[in-house]
Amino acid sequence: MLQVDFGGGALGRVRVARGADPLWEAALSLQLLQNRQESLAYDTWRREVRGALHRTGLADDVRALMPLCPPTGYFPDFLTPGRGDTGVEESVDCVLSTPRRRLAAELTRLCRDLRGPLPRSVRWVATGDVGALHWLGTTLRRYHAVAVAPYAAAIRARVADDRARRAEAALGGGAEGLLASYAELPGWHLRGTRLTTPYPEARSLQLGGRTLTLVPSFFCVRTPLALVDEALPPVLVHPLHPDPGWLPRLRAGAATPSVAHLIGASRAQLLDLLRTPMTTTEVAGALRLAPSTASRHAAVLREAGLVSTRREGNRVLHRRTPLGRALLEGAAPDTSAAPG
């Protein structure tokens, strides 16, 4: 059980994240990939992702990543630096800027829970070696592109439902009403200003006058989670509980029909995917296409002004333009930031 006391003015500082956080989703989905929890809701997703990892040549790297984020229990806080307010690239940059001392301390704690010989990937990352951190960042990005990004529409829909519920509660009852709305979740209870939730162990989360951010998560199951290091900005990540039919519905309506009729289903899916900048390889893995096909689709969209492509360091990234977003969402494009 987890207890959070919102006395002393803490209730007025509660924040609800804008959306799911990319690296919390990556870490928690990586745990789900290794266990059998909530099989009805996630087994089809597991089969799809495992197949995509093999097709994209990412399976070995993800197997090496798994000891850093085991199927249950503790995983290092540095893997989840966000609070639902940063994209994949910013979040990965935060991971890679983790001080060596913190890397070593959190991975030493992880090693106490691991059974058997210490995995090479854990030893390597713990050194803070530049090559190790480059591998970690690249693998996190590529894993997110295969296991999380293709399911963004379902994630956004569940987050939007949850956020609407919280907004309604806050408008009707202020901060107290917002907090009371979380007490409707299974196993959550509110007594005065003290919120108790299910948790893997007995714990009290001390806010100390700081803002608590409540982050919804599509791949969080059973119990909410908080960072272990209480010196870090406090977050409480809570499950969204998708129903067993979420993936078939996503596949049935993967692209807006009118847009799909106009530019084709694969290109409409690619355009939807590029709300986050991605390489051709990442796009190919996420959409289960050959890299040459993904490149050709990106080129067509770029020629139409719907996608832009630019080199950043040693990576070539595709981005959706304001016109591409407007086409997908059926709204007028925002040209305020567009070059003249």
Rank of each mutant, 00 (worst) to 15 (best):
V148M: 01
L270G: 02
L289R: 14
H297C: 02
Y74M: 01
V159N: 01
G87H: 01
D60S: 11
D61S: 15
G57N: 06
P244M: 11
T335V: 15
T138V: 13
S258Q: 15
M278F: 12
L289N: 00
S29C: 04
L28V: 02
L118K: 15
R163E: 00
G172H: 07
A180D: 12
T335C: 07
Y182H: 14
D272K: 08
A145H: 02
G187H: 11
T138G: 14
A286P: 04
T197G: 00
T256W: 05
P291E: 00
L33C: 07
L207R: 10
R203P: 01
A169T: 06
P242L: 10
Q3V: 08
L28K: 02
S308G: 10
P76C: 06
E176L: 10
F218K: 02
L301Q: 01
S39R: 13
T321F: 09
G7Q: 12
G245C: 12
E303N: 04
E312D: 12
R123V: 08
S295I: 00
P339C: 12
G192Y: 10
P322E: 07
A268E: 11
D162H: 07
L301W: 00
G128P: 04
S336K: 14
G172R: 12
A337H: 11
G116S: 11
A226L: 04
T281V: 05
A337W: 11
G253L: 11
N314L: 06
R210C: 01
T280A: 02
V215L: 09
L136A: 06
R63Y: 03
G172D: 07
E38P: 03
L195D: 07
P244I: 09
P150Y: 07
G19K: 09
I263K: 08
P119M: 03
L11A: 10
S204Y: 01
E168A: 15
L2F: 03
F75R: 05
L271I: 03
P71G: 14
L30P: 05
V228D: 14
V283Q: 02
A59L: 03
V228Q: 04
P333L: 12
T98R: 09
S336E: 15
D21W: 02
T321I: 13
R120V: 13
P233I: 10
H189L: 09
A255P: 11
L65Q: 03
A132F: 06
R109L: 14
A286N: 00
R15E: 07
A284K: 05
